[in-house]
Computed example of a mutant assay.
Amino acid sequence: MSETVTDRRPQVAASTIRMEGAPRTAPLSPHLSIWRWTPVNLTSILHRATGIANAAGATLLAAWFASGAIGEGAYEAVSGVLGSPLGLLVLILFTWSVMYHMTNGVRHLIWDSGHMLGKAQRGVSAYTVYGLSVLFTALIWIAAFAMGGN
């Protein structure tokens, strides 16, 4: 005689999926139902996003360098685009992306040394990363304009 095996695990009332041939339902990322934004997890998301943005910005810089090698006309064209209001906004955001990625990387190095791992300290370090990245970006662009850039 065959016995029927019952699943005694609590059933997930939230989103579930049914896979073909599967004897029971499996939860679909149950953490999504309890997840909330915090300064600490936002730093992780932004670190990944700025890593991608930095790759795009590096490509932009490579195009600018290549335009200089191509000739004066190409260089003037690319410099004109980058010197436009939209181009400057892109460059400022790229600078912030680099500064954010760098300061958050330093934060991770501090964590790797075993420091600032407490809940309150993680929050303080997240806000510190936000503030320093904006401060460093502002200082870089203030210096650039003070030296006659654009």
Rank of each mutant, 00 (worst) to 15 (best):
M1Q: 08
E3H: 07
T4R: 12
V5W: 13
T6P: 02
T6N: 12
D7N: 13
R8Y: 13
Q11Y: 15
A14P: 00
S15T: 13
T16W: 11
T16I: 15
T16P: 08
T16L: 14
R18A: 15
R18P: 00
M19R: 11
G21P: 07
T25L: 15
S29D: 01
S29W: 12
S29M: 08
H31M: 03
I34G: 14
W35M: 12
W35P: 07
T38H: 11
T38F: 11
N41E: 03
T43H: 10
T43C: 14
S44N: 14
R48Q: 11
N54V: 13
A55W: 10
A56T: 12
G57H: 05
G57L: 05
A58S: 15
A58D: 13
L60N: 07
L60P: 06
L61T: 12
L61C: 09
W64D: 07
A66G: 06
A69D: 04
G71T: 02
G71W: 01
G71E: 04
E72T: 00
A74V: 00
Y75T: 01
E76F: 03
G80H: 03
V81P: 00
P85C: 07
P85E: 06
L86S: 02
L89W: 11
I92E: 02
L93Q: 08
L93G: 08
T95W: 02
S97A: 15
S97K: 05
V98Y: 12
Y100C: 10
T103S: 10
G105L: 04
H108A: 03
L109E: 06
L109K: 03
D112K: 11
D112Q: 12
S113M: 13
H115R: 11
M116D: 08
L117R: 09
G118P: 03
K119Q: 02
A120L: 14
A120P: 05
Q121H: 02
Q121S: 09
V124A: 14
S125K: 02
S125L: 13
A126E: 07
V129K: 02
L132T: 04
T137N: 01
T137K: 02
T137E: 02
A138D: 00
L139W: 09
L139P: 03
A144I: 09
M147F: 10
G149D: 09
G149Y: 09
N150M: 06
N150D: 07
N150F: 08
